[in-house]
Design a binder for these strands. Structure first.
Length: 467
RNA sequence: GCUCCCUUCGUCUAGUGGCCGAGGACGUCGGAUUUUCAAUCCGAAAAUCACGGGUUCGAAUCCCGUAGGGAGUCCCA
């Protein structure tokens, strides 16, 4: 118990931070940080071809954007290959591994034979006399896995999982070119990094048994394992390119807030009773591996949007402007100082109805229209009604003397006007809305007027009165 | 083929033997807001708890099997 918790996130650099990986990272981060432990980052680039700086950068960007920080420098598995080889040879010295001189073809043949005879694949070199080894021929180092009995993994999420050793054959731990293999590298690195809790995708559950055997052979303490189910696409199949957005960067570009994505992700496959809105502080307090579900979960964009909308509403007004600016740029809407000021003024109402930052651009559509507004077609229908324009003129008069310092004041003015005339609000609301927004969706009229400001607001009404 | 994992409303889930003739959330549908709307509020439909056995006075909850889905099966991670 007194040992400090150490978790790690170990992605392979594929070019972006996978949405599923982001969730595992989040779980690891939450578990460690919520308990005063350490969270480490390791890049699984054992395979030389995977060693790619740009891809590592993408992962770092993704994690940072999500607000997940790690202790120390990211560790490169590739950089530790000599240490891995050292352990492979240590295993060899202990007799827990052996040199295998089989060629690829021999392995293939032997593998097929094993399947046919329902026996486990075994290298003839496992028990061969080392003296008979060929000279100058490349060899791999194989782990000498126990033939009988079973290996049971005590997994926090999955429970106790038993594997008959007959199903676990002698895996290669060091390739013929001297490079370590995944299962060896993970064990060595996790051990050296002092990882106490391994939380990762359940596609690694099978590996856990093999890795556990290596731990045992080295006499190293076995960490706590938690294998969490993968995230699937809306159709239930494993998430792949055809599902669209895979990397967290794609969700950022869609206008999601890191807080929103994180909240949605943590709720996917994990629960704390009926709680849906779980801000970071609560997540740190509540997160526990025990709450993780064993079944894979599907990604649901609608719910993501709903969750994100919650965090949009909570956004500070200045943040609404700053964070949505890139989305205006992308929509080719130039934001000069004047428009930024307008946007800031409207921010309190816009964020109420925009589920994403990208949606702010649409929600602000009515703001930046140039006078005179295009009131042709369906938009101006409300203005064509008998007496509509005359009524608008009167409203303009009333508004000219109104209090423009708050949306409420303007709303009250309009309501009073309707009450004085003893007419339904709809009668003035419809033409007014048309004059002010030209059919764009917008907040309540008091808010629209306030956001537009006296000059622009009154101006638009004038335009509609005398086209 | 073999080994392992999974299976509660369309989706995410609550639920660890009686409080469940199954609760919440998203979505959907209907209504309200005498002003648009993707916002807000209210309401409704929606799961024979994959299926079949068993244990038990009693099972979504325990056991066995079947089906479907997923992972692994070697010089990928």
């Amino acid at each position: 118990m007194p040992t400090r918790i150490v978790t790690r996130f170990a992605p392979s650099p594929t070019g972006y931070l996978h949405i599923g990986g982001a969730r595992t990272a989040l779980f690891n981060w939450l578990y460690a940080r919520g308990r005063g432990g350490k969270f480490l980052l390791r890049i699984e680039d054992t395979d030389r071809a995977r060693h790619n700086e740009a891809a590592v950068e993408a992962i770092i960007d993704g994690l940072s954007w999500l607000g997940l920080d790690w202790d120390g420098e990211p560790i490169s598995q590739y950089a530790r290959r000599e240490r891995h080889a050292e352990i492979a040879y240590a295993l060899l010295d202990k007799g827990a591994a052996y040199r295998c001189y089989m060629t690829t073809d021999e392995i293939e043949a032997s593998r097929l034979r094993a399947i046919e005879t329902k026996s486990r694949f075994e290298s003839p070199w496992r028990d061969a006399d080392p003296a008979t080894a060929p000279d100058g021929v490349p060899f791999t180092i194989r782990f000498r896995a126990p033939r009988d009995g079973e290996t049971s993994v005590d997994d926090v999420v999955q429970g106790i999982v038993k594997f008959p050793n007959s199903a676990l054959d002698d895996l290669i731990i060091l390739r013929s070119d001297g490079a370590p293999t995944y299962n060896l590298a993970v064990v060595v690195d996790d051990h050296d990094m002092g990882v106490t809790h391994v939380i990762r995708g359940d596609d690694h559950l099978n590996n856990a048994a093999r890795q556990q055997q290596i731990y045992a052979a080295m006499d190293w303490p076995i960490p706590s394992f938690s294998h969490v189910p993968l995230i699937h696409g809306a159709d239930g199949a494993k998430l792949s390119k055809r599902h669209g957005a895979l990397g967290v960067d794609a969700y950022r570009d869609l206008g999601f807030l890191p807080e929103g994505l994180a909240n949605y992700l943590i709720r996917l496959g994990w629960s704390h009773g009926d709680d849906e809105i779980i801000p970071r502080v609560k997540a740190l307090e509540w997160f526990d591996i025990a709450g993780i579900n064993r079944a894979p979960a599907r990604l649901d964009l609608s719910k993501l949007e709903h969750t994100n909308a919650h965090y949009m509403k909570a956004l500070d007004d200045r943040a609404v402007v700053e964070k949505s600016a890139p989305f205006f740029a992308r929509a080719s809407v130039a934001l000069d100082d004047g428009r930024r000021a307008q946007l800031l003024r409207a921010a309190p109402f816009l964020k109420e109805r925009a589920p994403t930052l990208a949606a702010i651009v649409d929600a602000a559509g009515f703001l930046f229209l140039a006078r005179p507004l295009d009131l042709s077609g369906k938009t101006g229908k409300a203005l064509e009604k008998e007496g509509a324009r005359a009524l608008l003129a009167e409203i303009a008069g009333k508004l000219a003397g109104a209090d423009w310092s708050s949306p409420e004041g303007l709303e009250t003015s309009l309501k009073d006007f309707a009450a004085d005339r003893a007419i339904g609000f709809g009668l003035i609301g419809q033409p007014l809305r048309a004059a002010l927004t030209a059919g764009h969706s917008a907040p309540s009229l008091g808010e629209v007027l306030y956001a537009l400001g006296r000059e622009q607001g009154l101006g638009r009404i004038e335009d509609a009165v005398s086209p």
